[in-house]
Design a protein around this nucleic acid. Structure first.
Lengths: 199, 199
DNA sequence: TAATTAATAGTGAGCGTTAACTAACAATAG
DNA sequence: CTATTGTTAGTTAACGCTCACTATTAATTA
């Protein structure tokens, strides 16, 4: 195979690894198969990654780009309700564009294998939770809602997004995730506690 | 090892298989390890199950008992709000008692491996969705709520339960799932659309 | 600028290990 | 006595990973 520098080759390897996981699950990701898909030898894989765990770490690092982009886009908005809307919609549009990523997120086995990967995934989840918490808090204070358990609301929304994506996967991507997401956003608005008008 | 009839032995095998999956994930479930835990030879496993897939099928069949019990208990209640409360609480109490089952539910890889297992799991999910749908519908009509997307509400609740259980797992079972569940139930009541009083 | 060197990216062969599963045969319960 | 439940000792295939080695590129020196 034609030589490529490590940065380029690493990109290809991670890319193909995601594709394999998406196609047949994490357990189907073998170095042999991966090498074959990248069209280099097995041994060459180890020129660019320490071990298999290191490759998965590469996938997760790529996934961190999601959060960066999400946070940037959210920061541009000012209305907290718009922020919430965008937070949800961003998940659906991103995942519809990067289908293969959904399999990584849902693969428990990946994170069971290694403590490092588990920690990495937990920190990603934590960050996202924090971001959503801030948004919902802003909605609460701006709309003068007195009674609202922000933390629970965050869990509800994240669970909602997660289950919709899971159902999308189980349906073999039979519907538009973005359209489905818009329906979900509308529904979330209906369960938001109503504004308590000031005196 | 002392001889046991197939029915008894099958029970033991399925039981230990669940334990192994719970301890280290589905990928750690090997026939060798399983045989060792059951204290019979590898070959003996194949006296009682056709193949590995057949063993997982045994686990899922066991899990169907969950739905049976749930439906029975729900049927005893009459107030739909009580039914919803019990529907949620049952999940948390059952899963706290059968910790190992949670790993099976969340293991995508199990269902990626086999079309049969995938179908089985999908039918379990579908049934539960149907049960919850009926409960929420009853709440809607009984409380004369005009505006309420029942289907979306069902997804919200199932996603909520699922994420709470997942967080419980990720925390290494650091908190009481039942207590956490009670908090969730309280919160769900607050997001229920308010009763529209009749004229 | 051309030749030499050092670093990098590739190779095939094969290591030790483990996987699911099977054949042939032995013990035991009804 | 016969069904069934168990055993030991294998099978083939795949796993992650390493070894000794070669080809290509980039940097350095003559």
């Amino acid at each position: 195979m034609a030589r490529l520098n490590t940065v380029e080759r690493q990109k290809h390897i991670v890319e193909q690894a995601i594709k394999i996981i998406n196609a047949n699950g994490y357990s189907s990701l073998s170095i042999r198969e991966l090498a074959h898909k990248v069209r280099i030898s097995e041994a060459a894989i180890y020129r660019h990654f320490l071990n298999k765990e290191d490759i998965i770490l590469g996938i997760l690092t790529l996934f961190c780009g999601f959060d960066k982009q999400l946070n940037q886009e959210i920061a541009l908005l000012h209305n907290p309700l718009e922020k919430l809307k965008h937070f949800m919609l961003f998940h659906f549009t991103y995942l519809e564009k990067h289908v293969a990523m959904t399999s990584v997120i849902f693969s428990e086995d990946i994170f069971n294998q290694s403590e490092i990967l588990k920690k990495k995934m937990q920190s990603i989840i934590k960050n996202r939770k924090k971001a959503l918490f801030d948004i919902v808090s802003a909605i609460k204070s701006e709309n003068c809602i007195s009674e609202m358990d922000v933390e629970e609301f965050v869990v509800i929304i994240l669970g909602y997004i997660r289950l919709i994506v899971l159902e999308w996967r189980l349906s073999n991507y039979a519907f538009s995730l973005k359209a489905r997401g818009n329906k979900a956003i509308k529904f979330v608005k209906t369960i938001l506690p109503k504004k308590i008008k000031s005196i």
